[in-house]
Amino acid sequence: MNLNDIKDIVKFIKSNRIREFYYKKGDEELSFSMESPEESRENKASKTKSQPGIVSAPVTKPGETEYLMARMEGKLTEKTIVKEIVSPFVGSFYRSPSPDKPPFVEPGQIVEKNTPVCIIEAMKIMNEIEVDMKCRIVSILVENGQLVEYNQPLFLVEPL
């Protein structure tokens, strides 16, 4: 990671109002904590009340951390456009067509238009979600078997 990468990441963090960020790979380690003046005042006030050992979780939108990780690992360039594939309804997320079958896709894989990438199941409707463009799977944002909400991002993909 060079200085330009770090500048880009800081820019991204600021523009998306990400408050805390931490990355570690091998010897490389990077952490940011961004606070607005109001938050800083609130935090200072609340610190007197907080219990030792309790740390607030980073607040990010779904997919942001994965996006940054992919960026830092060199999978994405400055010009890369990343799209989300979202769930069309509430249901269980499955990565493979059945428990004994391999996953539809893996991160890094390039898939053609109309390729199925997962199943969302609700009330015994198995909804196979297909990509509507040729793309690279950047990251998978939910765990196999996890219950997902309407419009919840499931994948980050890079259109090709």
Partner: peptide
């Protein structure tokens, strides 16, 4: 629920629906 059909508590029918969606 949601759609197994039972008679005298034994299953006689199963229904499995598949849907294909693209861009919602």
């Amino acid at each position: 629920w949601p759609n197994d059909i039972l008679i005298n508590s034994r299953k006689v029918s199963g229904i499995l629906t598949e849907m294909s969606t693209r861009n919602k």
